Computed example of a mutant assay.
Amino acid sequence: MNNCVNLVKLSVGTETIADLAAWQATKRAQTPEGFPRHVTRMWPKRESEIINGGSMYWVIKGSIQCRQKVIRLDEYVGQDGIRRCAIVLDPELIEVQSSLKRPFQGWRYLAPADAPSDLPAGRAQEEPIPVELNRALAEIGVL
């Protein structure tokens, strides 16, 4: 088993996985070579574990709904001259079993043992469960 850790982050302003994909398709949200990235103030202290097979798990509407593999961490200096961390992601959004997550600021580490499982490949083609029903099922432990 490799020594990795994941990150979990709120996808602020998105209602669906499709909204996240649309945002990541914009030039503003991409590296010069076209990979999606998330720019954050803090540089993760566990960088080597993150890039050793970790993923970014996205919280959308109160539940973890998908993940992306982390490719690398880049230094990013904005127009304000402040050094930030750009978390560079694989473009593939992998749907996971919905898991409730309370609001928080920034990102958090997520141990592989605590990460929700990927949905089977065929499930991604199904119509998504309405958000409120999905949340209710997760609250009672069905999902």
Rank of each mutant, 00 (worst) to 15 (best):
L93I: 01
I64G: 00
G81F: 09
Q97E: 09
L73H: 13
C66P: 02
C85K: 02
Q79S: 10
R72D: 15
I64S: 00
S63H: 15
L100M: 07
D80P: 05
L89P: 04
S99C: 10
E75T: 14
Q97I: 13
E75S: 12
A86L: 06
P91R: 05
Q97T: 13
C66V: 14
I87H: 02
I64A: 00
A86P: 01
K61N: 13
D74R: 12
G78P: 07
R102D: 10
V77P: 07
C85D: 08
G81V: 13
E92H: 10
E95K: 07
D90M: 04
D90L: 09
C66M: 15
I87L: 05
R67P: 02
L100R: 06
K69L: 03
A86F: 04
D90V: 04
D90E: 15
E92W: 01
F104Y: 11
E95A: 06
K101D: 06
R102G: 03
R84W: 07
L100Q: 03
K69P: 01
P103D: 12
Q65G: 01
Q79R: 12
F104P: 00
G78T: 13
R102M: 07
G78Q: 04
K61S: 14
G78R: 09
K69N: 13
D90C: 09
L73A: 06
D80T: 14
S98L: 05
C85G: 11
C66G: 10
I94N: 01
V70M: 01
Y76I: 02
P91T: 12
V88Y: 05
K69W: 04
K69V: 09
K69R: 12
L89Q: 03
S99Y: 05
Q105D: 06
K101H: 03
Q65N: 10
P91M: 04
L73P: 11
E92A: 11
R102A: 10
V77I: 15
R84Y: 10
S99F: 09
Q65T: 15
I87V: 15
L89C: 02
E95Y: 08
E75V: 14
A86M: 03
R67L: 01
F104C: 00
I64Q: 00
D74V: 03
V96L: 01
R72Q: 12
Q105C: 07
G81T: 12
A86V: 06
L73N: 05
I82Y: 08
G78E: 02
Y76Q: 08
C66A: 14
